[in-house]
Simulated assay, not measured.
Amino acid sequence: MTGFKTEHVAMASVALSGLVWGIFWIPLRALDDNGITGIWAIVLFYLVPAILLLPVMMMRWRRLLRLGWPLHVAGMLAGTALVLYAASLVFTDIVRALLFYYLTPLWSTLLARIMIREAITGARLGTIALALSGLLLILGFDSGFAGMLRAGDWMGIASGIVWAIAAVWMKSDAGGNGFDFTLSYFFWGSMAALLLTALPLEGAGHIPGWSAIWDVLPWIVPFVLFLVIPPAFAVMWGATVLSPGLLAILFMTEISAGTITAAIWAHEPIGLRDLAGVVLITGAGMWEPVVQMYRAKLQPG
């Protein structure tokens, strides 16, 4: 497969994965309804795939050890980022969690400037302006900011920042590949989810009983096999092929899927302010590539 085709397959895979993960809140809420509440629902969603992938980890243990800390730092960062994102879906409104996480293009731009001294162009200033405008709208700048952010909101913001670092790390690691990153991601994600139970949050201390876990296994195992592990591989592989900024842009399909499904099935009120935030933050992700395409068209020949 040529590099051109590989990039296009990666783009389609990441965009499709975003659509699938846009409904990730549904099984989390279903676990809550079955007595597996709060953080423990997230723990289960990371431990189950880690256990299912354990035979593969054992088969590749020499390679996983040989790749060393570059691989495992990537897994720690990606696992921590997406565990925090999953927690934000539990501890704040679905739409707020989505929008705070998808400030990632903003963090990626600032991180590139700080870490590798990448110039902030006019197009990137437009990205920052759109993202910040969307954030201000969601927070309600006209009514003050005091007490506006909940624990889940902070988790959503933190997850976007950590994921931006993880994406840069995976793209720069020439020795890693999507498969090994996926194994590392689920292992370290499980560790991060278990550590999250130590925080003084609602649902952190209530360990679910074995009967509750046994009752949900018939549907959670197929869900993990078909709708958790494959999208995770697509995203981790995409991170090795695509630029971190483009990766974040393509994954924004999750905003649309999450917002629409939350409005239909979770009956979460989505007002004009939230919709405007969706438009602005999505526009932040799309702004720079659109500007580049427009400039390319203006060039002669």
Rank of each mutant, 00 (worst) to 15 (best):
T127I: 10
F100H: 11
M236E: 11
A234S: 12
E254M: 05
S190F: 05
I157Y: 06
I94P: 00
S211W: 00
R63A: 15
T259G: 05
L280V: 07
M148Y: 05
L111W: 10
G152T: 03
M57V: 12
H72A: 08
E118G: 04
T92P: 07
A119E: 15
H206N: 09
A248P: 05
I26Y: 02
V279A: 14
A257W: 12
M293G: 12
D274Y: 05
H267Q: 11
I161N: 05
Q292Y: 08
A192W: 07
T282Q: 14
I213Q: 02
M58L: 15
V216F: 00
L44C: 10
W61A: 13
A263Y: 04
L44D: 03
S108G: 15
P49A: 09
Y85A: 04
I255G: 06
A12Y: 10
L247V: 07
N34D: 12
V291L: 13
A112N: 14
M236P: 00
A15V: 02
L64H: 05
M148N: 13
V235M: 12
I26Q: 01
D215T: 03
D93Q: 15
M252F: 09
I220G: 01
T182F: 13
I26W: 04
I220V: 15
L149G: 05
V290P: 01
G126N: 01
M76W: 15
I213T: 02
P222L: 11
V278Q: 07
E268L: 00
I220S: 10
W237L: 07
I220R: 01
P27A: 07
V43M: 04
D173Y: 06
L53V: 08
A204Q: 02
I249K: 15
F24N: 12
A97M: 01
I23V: 15
V241N: 07
L247H: 12
V228T: 14
M286C: 15
S143V: 10
G277A: 09
G22V: 09
W188L: 13
V90K: 03
Y102Q: 14
T121V: 00
M57P: 03
G126P: 00
G203I: 08
W237I: 02
M1C: 06
A262G: 05
A257C: 13
W214H: 06
W219D: 01
K5R: 13
M57I: 14
L47R: 01
V73N: 12
L130N: 05
A263R: 06
I207L: 08
G68S: 03
S133N: 02
F100T: 08
L52K: 01
L130I: 06
G75M: 08
V48K: 00
E268C: 01
M57H: 09
L247K: 03
V168S: 14
G152L: 01
P244Y: 07
L67F: 10
P200T: 11
I36V: 11
M252K: 08
A212L: 02
V56G: 10
V14C: 03
V291F: 07
T121Y: 01
A164T: 13
Y101C: 13
R124A: 03
G178C: 04
M57Q: 12
M76Q: 10
I157D: 04
T104K: 09
F181N: 14
L195T: 02
R29I: 00
G271P: 01
I36A: 03
D173V: 05
G38P: 04
L132G: 05
R29D: 02
A30R: 00
P55N: 14
G22Q: 13
F24K: 06
M115V: 15
P269T: 08
L67G: 05
L227W: 11
F4K: 09
